[in-house]
Amino acid sequence: MTIAIETHDLTRHFGDLVAVDHVNMQVPKGSIYGFLGPNGCGKSTTIRMLCGLLIPTEGGASVLGIDVLDDPEAVKSKIGYMTQRFSLYEDLTVRENLQFMSEIYQMSRTDRAQRIRVQLKKFGLDDRARQLAGTLSGGQRQRLSLAAVTLHEPELLFLDEPTSAVDPESRREFWEFLFDMVDRGTTVLVTTHFMDEAERCHALAILDQGVLVADGSPKQLMAELPASVVEVASDTTRIVREVLLELSEVIDVAQLGSRLHALVQPDVQNPTAFLGAALERKSLLASLKLVAPNLEDVFVMATLGRGADR
């Protein structure tokens, strides 16, 4: 397995703010690597450093074997970067946008026509080719952006919250495109705050306030969660939650729909009975069940642990 991205103590300050704090990670080639974290956790800043758009304050990174500090321009011809905001030209048509990108990447004339045709077809933009990009729907814009940044067939693709502005169906479709590309050897680094998307990644990194607090495959992260998860169903979830949070053995309680997920210290022998007893003392009715951790639990655990440290 070869490595597409490797960072060592990658750090970036903005004035007093530490946006990215000594991040060490490895992204294997041919995989989808997810960046999970709340807004402002340093996801975009990390991507921008990897693309050579921001200079690290400390540490460094190598992208496709090239040191981003030494030669950011060499990186740029091998990657595609889809920005969080739609960054193609709204007053150009779909085809004009693609044409412009193909010329910027200096593709040969015959290649250009061929690739644009392929991309238009692949991303379902055939009948929109003459439409102004500004008049496209959110999902169509997303597809156009992806078509534009993959026009030159980059080895590595950075996607910054690509699906935050599109409907669930477009999201699903979008991920199909990603898997398709990964099958053909592309490496994808994608940021998201959707758990279902995170679960689809081959590997994940959870960032919290600039610090990489957990990484691994989603399965591994869920299996190795240092807590037991008890699902609590009750008509009085709010009160139940307050009662549970008062117990020192309970790490955190998250609400998932009408149920609660209580994260309990792993050294508690029978967590279901333990919580049940605590609720009974307060005469609260609830049904409790030990469940396998999901990614949300992993995320809560990872971002909480750090908060408590401080």
Partner: peptide, 13 residues
Amino acid sequence: ERGNLELLITTPV
């Protein structure tokens, strides 16, 4: 302002 430059500067231009 429109964010086009962020895309443009990640290209070899």
